[in-house]
Amino acid sequence: MSKRVLVVDDSVFMRDIIKDIFAAGGFSVVGEAGNGVEAVEKYKELKPDLVTMDLVMPYRNGIDATREILRGDGKALVVMCSALGQETMVMEAIEAGAVDFIVKPPRAEDVLAVVKKVLGEG
C-alpha cells in the first residue's frame, strides 16, 4: 500500500507541484491544507504517514503547526518545505520536531529522496 501524505502549503500552485511529485513517485496524497490550523485538524482526521509543511502560512505558521501535530502524535513525520534564506526557521522547525526538510522550488528527485529516507525506504 502506498504511503499516505498530507500536503500543507498556502499556495495552491505549490501544493499542485508537490502533489504531482508525490503522485509520480507512487505516493498517495490523502489531503491538503492551506494554513497551520487546517493542517492540525487534517492531521488528526487523516493520520497520514507523512506531512510536508510550509513554513510561512496564515493563521498558524508551519513551526507552530508542527509542534501541535507532534504534541498529539509524537511519532508524526513532518518534513518542512522552505525557501533559500529560511535556514534559521527550518532549524527552529527541526528543534520543534520536524524530521527533515525540502527546499523550494521542489525538485522531484530531491523531494522523493528525502521522504523515502524519512520513511525508511531510502
Binding site: E87, M91, F101, V103
Partner: peptide, 12 residues
C-alpha cells in the same frame, strides 16, 4: 541546497 540545515538535522 542548505548544507547548514542538513548538518544541523543530522546533529539533531
Amino acid at each position: 541546497a542548505q548544507p547548514g540545515v542538513r548538518g544541523f538535522l543530522a546533529y539533531k
